[in-house]
Write a protein that binds this DNA or RNA. Structure first.
Lengths: 135, 135
DNA sequence: GCTTGACCTTGCCATCGTGGTAAGCTTTAC
DNA sequence: GTAAAGCTTACCACGATGGCAAGGTCAAGC
């Protein structure tokens, strides 16, 4: 159960692709894996748990850079929860900003679409809104 | 007023950077520009209007591929507004999907953040939710 | 022991849209 | 005539991921 795994097994266990595991190692998000004499990477349970942490953070949409910061905090016994919170709050603020922007686009476009007949005639409110002179 | 412009002037007039104008030409979104003997690109009013169309569509978040389709429709006198509408509606559906996903992440994260004390102690609900064994 | 298939390695390219930078040529303004 | 501004092409970079190819390795079946 605590035996070491190949990269494929670690990928399976963590939900992170082999490709990405290597990439995370390359970029320093994961520590260099232990290698067999022939060069195969082998992972222990702790390494897989790091991957699972990354998986969860990525699934929440944290950037790899922030995931790295979260991992540092995770491993820091003397962390201040305020630092974690600040990091998360900043990300939430960015999410809110992106959501708002997308909603604004969506609403305006929705409005255009509502004014488009959507038949076989060429007249189209959407095109009219995109056209340079028709605003 | 209708004189030809250099790429910098066209960029200024359209809001699209010089870099992107060249890129759009390279990828076929814009037709090859007329060139001076020395190789400089020159643009007339119609070309600038194409750029303005692109600018508006990009500002609405349409992908370059869809912008290309919209431009084709714009220039097609026999277009069916239904085709434009369908294109826009598909994009709206994608926007809605993305918005929903971001909101889901945001809401869950907001919940975690609300349970984090945010002080100088290491205990942290956010870390606990990201940690493999604490779910 | 040998073959086969599954797995591993590295390295390179592609995405999408944009920005940067560099080396060199042209035009414009003084 | 010179300097500055603007143009050209050709690269590299981002962020995060996938794909492919050429080759080495391991495990199972015979």
């Amino acid at each position: 159960m605590n035996a070491s795994m190949t990269i494929g097994q670690a990928a399976e266990a963590s939900g992170i692709s082999r490709k990405m595991i290597r990439y995370y190692e390359e970029t320093g998000l994961l520590p260099p894996a232990r290698r067999s004499e022939s060069g195969y990477r082998y992972y222990d349970q702790a390494a897989v748990e790091q991957m699972q942490f990354i998986k969860r953070a990525r699934d929440m949409g944290f950037s790899l850079e922030r995931v790295g910061q979260l991992m540092s905090l995770w491993h820091d016994d003397k962390r201040h929860s305020a630092d974690v919170k600040a990091l998360a709050q900043q990300y939430i603020a960015e999410l809110d900003e992106n959501i708002a922007q997308m909603q604004a686009m969506r609403n305006e476009l929705r409005d255009w679409v509502d004014h488009c007949h959507g038949d076989d005639r060429p007249e189209c409110a959407i095109i009219d809104h995109l056209k340079p002179h028709a605003d």
